[in-house]
Amino acid sequence: MINFVFNQPSQWQQLKNGIRQLAKSEILARFEQVGFEQKADGSLLTEADTEMQKQTQRFLARNWPEFAFLGEEMSLEQQKKALCSPQGCWILDPVDGTSNFASGIPVYAVSLALMMNGELVAGLVYDPDRDEMFAARLGQGAELNDQRLVAQTPKRLLKQTSGIIDFKRLTPELAFQIIQDNPYASQRSFGSVALDWAWLAAGRGHIYIHGSQNIWDYAAGLLILTEAGGKSCTLEGEAVLLPQIKKRSAVAATTPELFKQWADYLKI
């Protein structure tokens, strides 16, 4: 089915071009130009989120009407219904990193994945500020701005790595352990889950841990890292992808060797 959807390079390019254009007009054009409101869960919402979701849904419905659509800003009932579609489902986070976006911090992205039969088959993470399009299709590798992307780094030891660490969503015990042990060379937290995964695939960080991600946060980035050759699992040692509206932890690394060391440290 994935070959049917994207069997022509022109269709794949059409998807990437469409998302790039929409992100520039609906997100980038509003950067530092709009206010925000707070949602019930404490996260932020801006006009860029709502307009990007609305316009992306229209674009996808025009070109691939056979697939259902799940957007972060939809109701839980609508999201669950979309995931049950037998044909497949688009999964969109219109602005991943809204807190950064609303604060004038240029670290945010749009994340779009296509899931069919409970499997991720295509994914895009587009950073409009840097004009970087990370993309992947199942079994066909990953790419960055149409160039092959392979997850690699000269770092060989855990102690040499840069860790992308989200302490906020870890248990206090695990967070304290990591802070106390300092098992890496340096630590970062960027505020965009989608870019965390994509930058890990690009070797801009080497190990990763996050305690709680929604499927729209991680779906596209997970496929990109996997297709680039990186490795991941949950803190319980399970596959990160769960085709449900249920938050998941994530542990990942740029290379299999670093992943093993990181997982061993975490006792997974």
Rank of each mutant, 00 (worst) to 15 (best):
I207R: 01
R20D: 00
A109K: 00
E257L: 10
L45H: 05
A68T: 10
D264S: 13
W197I: 04
F190I: 15
G163T: 04
L266A: 10
T153D: 12
R169K: 13
Q13K: 10
N63I: 04
G141T: 07
L60F: 05
R169T: 15
K80W: 03
A185F: 12
L149M: 08
M133T: 09
G230L: 10
L241H: 05
P86N: 04
A23L: 08
E257Y: 01
F67Y: 15
V107M: 10
F69A: 14
Q11N: 09
G230Q: 07
D264Q: 11
R188T: 12
L124S: 01
F31V: 08
L195N: 00
T153R: 08
V125G: 05
Q147N: 08
I215W: 01
N63M: 06
T56E: 07
G163D: 09
V121I: 12
F101I: 06
A198G: 15
F59Y: 14
T234D: 12
K246S: 15
T56K: 05
I268R: 00
D181L: 10
N145I: 03
Q87P: 04
E227N: 08
P183C: 14
C89M: 02
G42C: 11
F176G: 15
G71E: 09
Q13C: 06
Q38P: 07
E37M: 05
K54M: 10
Q140A: 13
T161G: 07
R248N: 11
I2V: 11
A40T: 15
S111P: 01
E73W: 10
V125N: 03
L83P: 01
L92F: 04
Q177L: 15
A48Q: 09
G191I: 05
Q38G: 11
Q57N: 11
F167S: 11
D146H: 07
L83Q: 02
L225D: 03
Q53F: 08
E72L: 06
Q261F: 03
N63V: 06
A194I: 05
A185T: 04
Q21M: 08
Q87V: 12
R62E: 15
A23E: 04
K168S: 12
K247V: 05
G211L: 08
D146A: 09
K231V: 13
V95H: 00
A136C: 10
V95G: 00
M52V: 09
P106M: 03
E77K: 10
A198W: 00
K246F: 06
V107G: 01
C89H: 00
M52T: 14
G104M: 05
Y126E: 07
Q11T: 11
G104Q: 05
G139V: 10
L149T: 09
F176E: 14
F176P: 09
L225V: 11
L76S: 13
V193P: 08
N182S: 14
E132C: 05
R58N: 13
R156M: 12
A109W: 01
Q140G: 08
V34D: 12
A228V: 04
M133E: 12
E236V: 04
R58Q: 15
A109P: 00
T254D: 11
W262R: 01
Q14L: 07
D129H: 06
G139Q: 06
S75E: 13
F69Q: 15
A48C: 09
Q33Y: 02
K24N: 14
